[in-house]
């Protein structure tokens, strides 16, 4: 069953097209990462999904309800993390827990305090005086205590040092796997996503480039380096072919033999042909290009 369904979303900022007719869905229990370069509209998608932006056309449904008219019952089943771990910073640690607990009947107070035990902070410390890393733990603790079915996390790694990023990812992974949660997240640090996500959507300017299981991308998508006597042809099989110094590189889901065949189809010769396995970050570069 799909927890999130988006159909034919088109959006513009002024006259600038952000997306045209993009559709996707997220199945229950999946962790889906939204990848894209800066300005491809990752946060825009989150805003549309959570009902904070009206698209020019199209509709998104979360838990079966249209995004613009989410009922309080549906909202209580959705945990939202804003970019930069924004919280109500005038509260202290105890006050924010007391505040949120009054909205959720199944509030798990112990989950919040369990996570915060590791922070070297007093319960009366104000959130505004905390580092971004500490705030990320507060935000995560509040999400765990809320215990929502769906977590929407906007650029969760923003402002976090590697230690806090890893901590965040590990806790989140453990929690979502144990509780069969659905997660929709964005991050600009793709190494973190690789440890976490089952499926990924890759956005390009104005369109959805790819929606595939992460394992399929890291298993099948390869970089090929080679030297060629002629400029390689542009074909649907080859992604972002470019010359780096004296060597060409291209990316493809196709096996090495087929890639070699494609490269020589225009008549040139190919030498020093090397196939390389890729991390998710390299695969992302291969799919979207460096610029």
């Amino acid at each position: 069953m799909a927890i999130i369904q988006c159909e034919n979303i088109t959006h513009y900022y002024g006259n600038r097209l952000i997306y045209k007719n993009i559709s996707f869905e997220v199945k229950r229990g999946k962790i889906l990462g939204l990848l894209g370069k800066n300005g491809t509209g990752k946060t825009t998608i989150i805003n549309i999904l959570t009902g904070y932006l009206k698209p020019r056309s199209g509709v998104c449904r979360i838990l079966g309800e249209e995004m613009e008219h989410l009922s309080p019952a549906a909202k209580s089943r959705i945990g939202l993390l804003l970019e930069g771990h924004i919280q109500h910073s005038y509260f202290n640690i105890e006050q924010i827990e007391k505040f949120y607990s009054q909205f959720f009947p199944n509030w798990k107070r112990e989950a919040y305090y369990e996570l915060l035990k590791k922070l070297q902070v007093a319960p009366t410390q104000k959130i505004s005086t905390m580092s971004c890393g500490q705030r990320s733990q507060i935000a995560l603790g509040l999400l765990f205590a809320q215990d929502p079915e769906l977590l929407i996390l906007d650029d969760f790694s923003m402002g976090l040092d590697p230690g806090y990023r890893r901590l965040f990812v590990e806790y989140l992974r453990e929690y979502t796997t144990a509780e069969n949660k659905t997660v929709f997240l964005t991050s600009h640090i793709i190494q973190d996503m690789e440890l976490l996500i089952d499926d990924c959507i890759v956005m390009d300017y104005g369109r959805l480039l790819l929606h595939e299981p992460t394992a399929r991308i890291t298993k099948n998508f390869r970089r090929f380096r080679f030297q060629a006597t002629a400029t390689p042809p542009q074909t649907p099989v080859l992604w972002n072919t470019e010359k780096v110094g004296h060597t060409w590189e291209t990316y493809s889901f196709a096996p090495a033999e087929e890639v070699r065949r494609e490269l020589t189809s225009a008549g040139g010769e190919v030498s020093r042909f090397v196939e390389e396995k890729l991390s998710l970050e390299d695969a992302f570069i291969g799919l979207t290009g460096k610029y």
Partner: peptide
């Protein structure tokens, strides 16, 4: 403070 960093989203997201 609600409009700073669009915190109002957190408030409006409450059930």
């Amino acid at each position: 403070p609600e409009m700073q960093s669009k915190r109002l989203k957190l408030t409006l997201h409450l059930p």
